[in-house]
């Protein structure tokens, strides 16, 4: 059970934060199909950053002297860096769709094609192979928080809650939850959030009240890019052993599906991403999931092909979309370039 909860969280958190990225863009009126591409880019820049920091003196010193605090600091720094890179990359989308009034679907698709191409091009040049890894060690031993990290001894039993939420977890998971809550409050409870949302519903009306629609849309898309870039790095750190290979397994698109399923509302999205995280977790580790701890691996014993489990998240997404899209409430002006002269 502990394993199940932890694994589900590992998949759910990046989904949740990237789905929020989608919300910020769409609420301001821009369809951000490029989430996948931005995640790939963020993951690459994050891994590259970790790789470069690893050769500096203080990280070398910390890893040889068990400097857990330094490692967690590095993790936070890398998340910020990946977010910054994602924000910069997303400017390409905002420039095309806000200033040049381009087709947002094609622009997003272009970014989705550009990110893996760029990333693979540089990975080949840097590492001479198709995967960029850390210089040494693995993500778990560097960044994972364990009992011993927190000062407990190896034999301490922390109870179910302690075992689940304090042992073998990542700081990024909790940081992402905090960011998620704070940004949701900003979007729905502040003046700024109201203005941003008005640009996605009726930009002409917003403009008539003195809100700069272009600026708001840039802000929304840039926040979206930052969140997606950060989510990309978190995904690669927690589930892909801090490697980058120009692929995040369609997580950006899954996040879009989560966003639509969650009806563009934070609480629903959090629930939806946990549901999808669960399916992803089953797909990834169905053979080692021991639900009630009696040593029987139920899912593996059913004897269904592994391919079915891998297919499941996507099938469920389609089904869920089929049943929820009818009464979905998308921002009214999403995908429509803002034209001042139009009524």
């Amino acid at each position: 059970m502990t394993y199940l909860v932890q694994q589900t969280l590992l998949y759910a958190i990046p989904l949740m934060i990237v789905a929020l990225a989608g919300v910020f863009a769409e609420r301001s009126g821009i369809i951000n199909l490029a989430l996948e591409g931005i995640m790939i880019f963020g993951a690459f820049m994050g891994v590259l950053f970790v790789r470069m920091m690893q050769s500096t003196y203080w990280i070398e010193y910390a890893s040889s002297h068990k400097g857990y605090g330094t490692m967690q600091l590095l993790e936070i720094l890398t998340m910020l860096f990946a977010g910054l890179c994602g924000a910069i990359f997303s400017l390409l989308l905002s420039f095309a769709s806000i200033n040049l009034k381009a087709d947002q679907t094609i622009g997003g698709t272009a970014l989705n094609m550009m990110a893996p191409a760029f990333v693979l091009f540089f990975i080949r040049i840097i590492a001479n192979q198709n995967t960029l890894q850390m210089l040494s060690g693995d993500s778990a031993s560097m960044f994972m928080i364990k009992k011993t990290t927190l000062g407990f001894s190896k034999n301490d039993d922390l109870g179910f809650l302690g075992n689940t939420f304090l042992h073998k977890v990542y700081l990024a998971t909790y940081l992402c939850i905090i960011i998620y809550v704070v940004l949701s409050v900003i979007l729905y409870k502040t003046k700024f959030g109201l203005r941003l949302r008005s640009c996605g519903e009726n930009p002409q009306a917003a403009d008539s009240l003195g809100i700069n629609v272009y600026k708001m849309r840039y802000t929304g898309t840039t926040i979206s890019g930052a969140l997606a870039g950060m989510g990309g790095f978190v995904y690669s750190m927690t589930t892909a052993n801090c490697t980058s290979n120009g692929d995040v397994a369609g997580f950006g698109f899954l996040a879009l599906a989560v966003m639509i399923f969650g009806n563009w509302k934070p609480l629903n999205i959090a629930g939806a991403s946990i549901l999808f995280g669960l399916f992803k977790c089953i797909a990834a580790g169905y053979s080692s999931i021991d639900i009630n701890g009696d040593g029987i691996y139920l899912l593996a014993d059913i004897g269904v092909s592994a391919h079915l489990y891998r297919m499941l998240p996507y099938v469920i997404t389609l089904l869920v979309l089929a049943f929820t899209s009818k009464n979905s409430r998308a921002p009214k002006a999403e995908g429509i370039p803002y034209d001042k002269g139009k009524r």
Binding site: K101, A102, D103, T109, A110, M114, A117, L120, F121, I125
Partner: peptide, 24 residues
């Protein structure tokens, strides 16, 4: 050369990106 074939993918992506605002 020391480069790799992914640069063509980059170029193709740029072409798509430019096509997005071909109207402009």
């Amino acid at each position: 050369t020391a480069y790799n074939e992914y640069i063509t993918d980059v170029m193709i992506a740029v072409i798509v990106y430019i096509s997005a605002f071909s109207l402009v």
